[in-house]
């Protein structure tokens, strides 16, 4: 086995220019850096009841999770990297936002249920131009 190893490395030495070795080294480093990066938070949704964290769900696998809200059961659905509040047993709600969410920091909520879900992480504007136009809050 060791013999094979030496054979391999000597072949490598013969087959490569210095530039090749630079390519190998740098590309390897970049790949390793990419792989060991901490798990980006945009892949999880946090579920809160009455502002207490109940659990975090991964956005990478589709699921439907029931959660006990103030007015009954609320289902949180994860599909295709997005999340939403699926059903709730109370009648007509004053929810602030109840559609699909997928970007970091986005929120969907059922106010009377006391259930709030949010994609983990801080909101990141995609371009600097968007950063300029960004509002820190909406008044209404």
């Amino acid at each position: 086995m060791k013999n094979l190893g030496f054979k391999f490395f000597s072949l490598l030495k013969k087959a490569t220019y210095p530039a090749d070795r630079w390519v190998m080294a740098i590309s390897a480093i970049i790949l390793i850096a990419l792989v060991i990066q901490p798990h980006r938070a945009g892949d999880e949704v946090s579920i809160y009841k009455d502002n207490q964290l109940l659990m975090n769900l991964s956005l990478n696998s589709d699921s439907i999770t029931p959660v006990e809200g103030r007015l009954g059961e609320v289902k949180i659905e994860v599909k295709d990297g997005q999340a939403r509040l699926l059903e709730y047993s109370s009648l007509r709600l004053i929810g602030t936002k109840t559609g699909w969410i997928k970007n970091r920091g986005e929120i969907a909520v059922c106010v009377p249920c006391g259930i709030l879900i949010q994609i983990k992480g801080d909101k990141k504007p995609a371009t600097t131009e968007q950063k300029e136009k960004l509002f820190d809050g909406i008044a209404r």
Binding site: K14, A15, N60, G81
Partner: peptide, 28 residues
Amino acid sequence: GHDGIFLALPWFLIGSWFTGLVNGLLAF
């Protein structure tokens, strides 16, 4: 269609790096 695929990309690229190396040696 959804961005989750890019999460797996670094791992795929590592595989590509090795196959690239082997193919390169064979080509040589």
